[in-house]
Every structure is written in C-alpha cells, then in structure tokens.
Nucleic acid binder design. Structure first.
Lengths: 114, 114
DNA sequence: GTTTAATATATCGAACTTCTATATATTGGA
DNA sequence: TCCAATATATAGAAGTTCGATATATTAAAC
C-alpha cells in the first residue's frame, strides 16, 4: 500500500527517538505506553512510536544511564513500568537537541535554504 | 575516540542522503566524487558523504529511476561517471523535501518549540 | 454473559542505511 | 620516487526502526 502523504517517513526519525523519549520524560515521569501516546499526540499523529521501536529504545536509554524505571500502578490501577529521566539523561537531551539543530542547519545549507 | 562536538551525528542523516544527492544534481550534472565534495562544502563540513555511503546511494537513486549516469571525461581529463537527475527525480526531490519539513515540524512540536 | 477493543509490556527477525575497511587506478606535486 | 589527492566500487559490521507475534488486564459494547 502507498504511504499516506500526511504521514512523514519514519526513517527520517532514525536517531531521534531517544531524544523524543528523553524530552517526554523531562516533562514528567511516565510509563511506556503513555510516552508513545504523548509523542503521537504532540506530533499531531505524525510520529507513531510503535511498540517494537519504543521498548527497545527504553532499554537503550536505561542501559546508557539516561533513564531508570520501576514497577508501579497507573492512575487507572494497572501494573505499569514507570520511567524517570536521570541527570545524565537531561544532559544528553541537551546534546541531542544541539546535534539535531546542527544537522538541520547543515541540510538546509545543502538545500540552499540557509 | 570521542565524537568532535562540531561534527553532527551522521545517524541523523539517515534517509536524507538521497535527497541531498538529488538536490545537488538538480543544480547541475556531476560525477560522484564531486557530489560528495559539494555536499561537504555546502554543509560547512558538517556532512561528509563517505564513499561507502555515496556509491550505494547513487546505485539506489538510479534503480529508482531518479537519476541516470554515463561515463565521461572530467574537466581535468579523468574518466568519471556523470550523474543526471531525471524528471521523476525532480518530482521525488520535492516529495522528500516536503517529508523532511513535515518531520522537522513534528519533532519540534514534541520538543515544545512549535 | 460474551465478545471485542483498548491498554500495557516485551521479544524476534526482516529491512534499510550508514560506516569503516579494503581494493584498484590515475594524476600532480614534493 | 614517493605520497597525497582524485575517482569508483564492494564487502561486512553496526545500528535503528518496523511489522508480527505473544501475553495479560480492563472496560465497553452487544
């Protein structure tokens, strides 16, 4: 099936998912499913962080020390795993945003728009 | 060795190399090595399209019908392969730029900057 | 009461792109 | 003469994302 023109190509997302997760956690402690919903909501449905990308990414950021997690209970009474950003994670978020901006600027220069 | 902070992470480039190549060819017919130099130059050294990425990408865009190539002779008298963008390639370039802009906007929304 | 959709976590393998390393050959300058 | 730059090309490794699959709970619809 042809890609919906309203849906940005998710391969352009590569390398930015960790940043989006860290940004979401920087606002508030959250469980995995809620992180995905928040990213999808804020992006206007453009970014659908799928489970198969999200959970490996959550493992990744924990392994790097950028977030930690613990089992807890959601507001609706369900058993969920809560993720919290660490100080190292906040620092990393800043680095990733800088890198992202630098790459955007560089690409725009090649496109003749900067 | 630690990544130079002046060098953007190239994994953020993923999915955009074809666009950058098509953009370069949209300006003028060029051979592979010159395309890489032009991209590096315009990006202020931020994007170094390496040979191992460039030549597979050039194969890709030709396979998709976005560019064609022929052996020729450079201004310095060397045997080189010249690449030319096709009408289909110009159309694709427009699509890729739109997708890129849409993804940038979506990411910025998640980052709370739009 | 039963079925279905939504919520929630998790893993697997396929697909894709990029990189480094390697190979080959030519040209110009030190 | 040697070395750096020019020029094309392939192979294999690494990394990320995705769809598919699995499991389990809860709420709503019928």
């Amino acid at each position: 099936m042809a890609r919906d023109s309203a849906t940005p190509r998710n391969d352009l997302l590569k390398g930015t998912l960790d940043m989006l997760i860290l940004q979401t956690l920087a606002v508030q402690k959250m469980h995995g499913y809620a992180i995905a919903q928040r990213i999808e909501e804020l992006s206007g449905g453009a970014i659908g962080a799928e489970a198969g990308s999200l959970y490996p990414a959550l493992e990744r950021v924990q392994k790097k020390g950028w977030a930690k997690s613990e089992w807890g209970v959601s507001t609706t009474g369900r058993r969920v795993r809560y993720y919290t950003i660490t100080a190292s994670g906040r620092k990393q978020l800043g680095i990733e945003i800088s890198d992202f901006d630098a790459m955007f600027l560089a690409i725009n220069r090649v496109l003749g728009r900067a």
